[in-house]
Computed example of a mutant assay.
Amino acid sequence: MTSALNQISSVANQLTYQITHDFDAQAELLRGWNQDYLQMSSGNFSGYVSEIKFDDVHLFLEYTSQALFQHGQLPEDVLAIGVPLAAKSQGVFCGSATNSNSIHIFSGHDGFEFYSPSELVMAGISVNRSALLSLLTAEEQESVQKNCAQAHLLQLNPTGLEAIRSFMRDIFHTVQVTPAVLHNPQITTSLRTSLLSLLADNLTHSYDTDPAPISTARCWKIVTESRELALSHAENPVSVAELCQHFGISRRTLQYCFHNLIGTSPVAYLRAERLNAVRHMLKDADSVTDAATYWGFWHFGHFSQEYKKMFGELPSATFKRLHALN
């Protein structure tokens, strides 16, 4: 297999990038997936798998130059999804034609079958199933279990789908540029929390139903207590899933409270609180990076853009201005 596979880089077994020129070798790269590949189009095969592993999280980008027939099966304790980032044509996943508004649920009792098109780039996420379910209400757990009982295509709204794509692009860019972030427990904990929350938001359908009646006073208490929770967990940013679990309410009810009272989403609110916390911390911090990392912002390019959008100036400008006054 060494002639068919090149391992380009490895950082503490957490970041790897491997190139292949043989589809059988490609099938073996994702360990634990028990995959077999058959090449269906003509021509020399080339492919790669770039992987990030930390804690119980496995992320990958896979490229395959030729059309393949793929078959595989994951362990029952693993929940895995895939989102195509690029493809030359349409594929077929578990009997359904692929489209731009769906994700691939690879998990399931009977495994998966995938006729993948040529020039495919697939972003994949696998996590421990129990870890995700522990963040959810009983109703949401039932929804996730139902959605992931068998491999299939799951339709998502464009916003949710783009959030997953953006997360994958951002984390691979960040880790490739600064691989040392994987050695920072605070950052990997933040990444894991963000990822589980992202999956919870998109694999539960309880938000499609109308929320149970809730008073304005109760909504306000939820909003104010959410602020306290956000500011008391700098080392591990609070997620929407954790707020729902804390208050014992569904995502739809949480959304209702925030939109009804302050006209924004819980995600946007939590992010605004952390951006403000960074701004306050810049007064005494040794650097912008220290303050951003402390409050769970690991993609510094996007952090700077969001900070400027919120406050009208780059965090570096705030830092220089505040320290010039000292």
Results as ranks from 00 to 15, higher is better:
Tyr48Asn: 11
Asn236Leu: 02
His109Ala: 10
Asn44Gln: 13
Ile81Asn: 09
Phe45Asn: 03
Ser190Lys: 11
Ala217Glu: 15
Glu162Val: 09
Val267Phe: 11
Val11Trp: 05
Asn260Tyr: 14
Leu191Val: 01
Leu325Pro: 00
Leu243Asn: 10
Ile187Tyr: 04
Glu139Gly: 00
Met310Trp: 05
Gln39Ser: 07
Val223Leu: 15
Ser143Trp: 06
Ser126Tyr: 08
Val240Glu: 14
Val83Arg: 09
Asn128Trp: 01
Thr318Phe: 12
Asn202Tyr: 03
His205Gln: 13
Phe303Val: 00
Phe300His: 14
Ser3Ala: 06
Ala151Glu: 00
Val267Tyr: 07
Ala234Glu: 06
Ser50Arg: 15
Pro315Arg: 08
Thr137Asp: 12
Lys146Ser: 05
Leu120Asn: 02
Pro185Lys: 06
Leu79Ser: 05
Thr178Leu: 02
Asn13Thr: 01
Ser130His: 08
Leu325Arg: 12
Pro266Cys: 07
Lys53Pro: 00
Leu85Phe: 08
Arg321Glu: 10
His152Cys: 04
Val267His: 07
Leu275Gly: 13
Thr264His: 03
Ser50Met: 10
Gln155Ser: 07
Ala163Met: 05
Arg252Gly: 04
Trp298Gly: 02
Asn13Gly: 07
Arg271Gln: 15
Val240Thr: 13
Thr174Met: 04
Phe300Thr: 01
Phe60His: 13
Thr224Asn: 14
Phe247Lys: 10
Val57Glu: 03
Val127Ile: 15
Gly43Arg: 07
Gln26Cys: 01
Gln176Glu: 00
Ala200Thr: 02
Ala324Ser: 15
Ala131Asn: 12
Thr216Val: 14
Pro315Met: 08
Ala87Asn: 10
Cys148Trp: 08
Gly296Trp: 06
Asp110Gly: 02
Asp208Tyr: 13
Gln35Ile: 15
Val278Cys: 09
Lys146Glu: 08
Gln245Asp: 08
Ser287Lys: 13
Ala268His: 09
Leu15Asn: 06
Tyr256Gln: 11
Gly301Val: 05
Ser194Ala: 15
Gln7Val: 12
Glu76Thr: 03
Lys283Gly: 04
